[in-house]
Design a binder for these strands. Sequence first.
DNA 1: GGCAGATTGTGAAAAACTTAACGACTATCT
DNA 2: AGATAGTCGTTAAGTTTTTCACAATCTGCC
Lengths: 219, 219
Amino acid sequence: MDIEQHKIPQATAKRLPLYYRFINNLHSQGKLRVSSKELSEAVKVDSATIRRDFSYFGALGKKGYGYNVEYLLSFFRKTLDQDEITKVALIGVGNLGTAFLHYNFMKNNNTKIEYAFDSNPEKVGTEIGGVPVKHIDKLEDIVKGDITAAILTVPSAAAQGITDRLVHSGVSGILNFTPARITVPEHIRVHHIDLSIELQALVYFLKHYPLEAGEEQEE
Amino acid sequence: MDIEQHKIPQATAKRLPLYYRFINNLHSQGKLRVSSKELSEAVKVDSATIRRDFSYFGALGKKGYGYNVEYLLSFFRKTLDQDEITKVALIGVGNLGTAFLHYNFMKNNNTKIEYAFDSNPEKVGTEIGGVPVKHIDKLEDIVKGDITAAILTVPSAAAQGITDRLVHSGVSGILNFTPARITVPEHIRVHHIDLSIELQALVYFLKHYPLEAGEEQEE
DNA sequence: GGCAGATTGTGAAAAACTTAACGACTATCT
DNA sequence: AGATAGTCGTTAAGTTTTTCACAATCTGCC
């Protein structure tokens, strides 16, 4: 089964959590069916792309009818949540880290932030958004063998050092919010999200790609 | 000149701010020249892609030599900063909003957050990261005609309402950090960044696309 | 039961993006 | 001066992603 999964395009994989959330919304609103066109308007993805994305998983809909929300939801739950919850650690309880901890993650979600780490003694020992804050010195002890992924919200000067310790403690993925581009062994996956770059890119697009009626938006 | 700019692929445009920052770093480290290979290792983008990206702007480098850091920097400054600074407003001074305000934006940057808005009377009137916090009721008065883009860091229930007010006040771009997919007229550009989806996508990739030696990383 | 209208799933084409490969050129070493 | 190693810009090939467009087929109504 894992072999076949490889046929799902990465672009599709990135949209799955988005679909999942909106289907969840529809379900809690009591909606029974939805068409690719409706969904398209809600998530801002072309309806043909949605149908194509869904089709990678087989025939989830019915012609002339659309998709059954209940069925779609249970399908996504099975596909995305897959067995067990992924345990995550968050490093760096500044403003950004705190924002993450307050996010209501467990809703519709296959991930749980188990621990946060910081070096500030005023924060260590407290609990934020239900997540205990540990001292950064304990990183290896606590993470080792138990945690799969890490969210990196430390100052960029500390990024590579903490990364090395995370890799050494066996995490397989890092969500890097620092401006530093961290270096990791080949088997570790890193996604970078850089707030400053996102803003600059938006501004560049505003200046150089003014939207005319009919042009579409992208992520 | 603006007409020709349209030939730059969007994928390239998104990488420009990243290149810009690293070239800046190199420059402040006193480095005089850099090759696409070196740069590739620093920013984690294939060296051929970098050469291709740069080439959209003409011949910036010298064969057998590489790129002159000083020249590259002045070129990017001209291209990205383009005349004047873009004025930005931030709506919602929660943890995420505060993180943004503390970001050192003006460094290497063509954008400035001029005002923040919130409804909390304890925050209104203060200044965070050098940015004055105004009451949300004043949004239209202050934004109108002066502000080009907005960063939306409000609770998702408020997202569409604030969006409508921003559009009405004449902003052309919105960086939306709420999980809601907002609806705007066609001439307004929206970039969505959804923290929860980023985490879920990372986890999905970890489970279904385990990295082997030789596979590459993407954003 | 039958028909009008709706909507999927997908083949095929187009578009967008990345990567490999190489000719042309530079710098430096001996 | 010639040899060597390094590097760009670009052509061409490859890959991935999006979009079009429509037959197949289901629903809902009469």
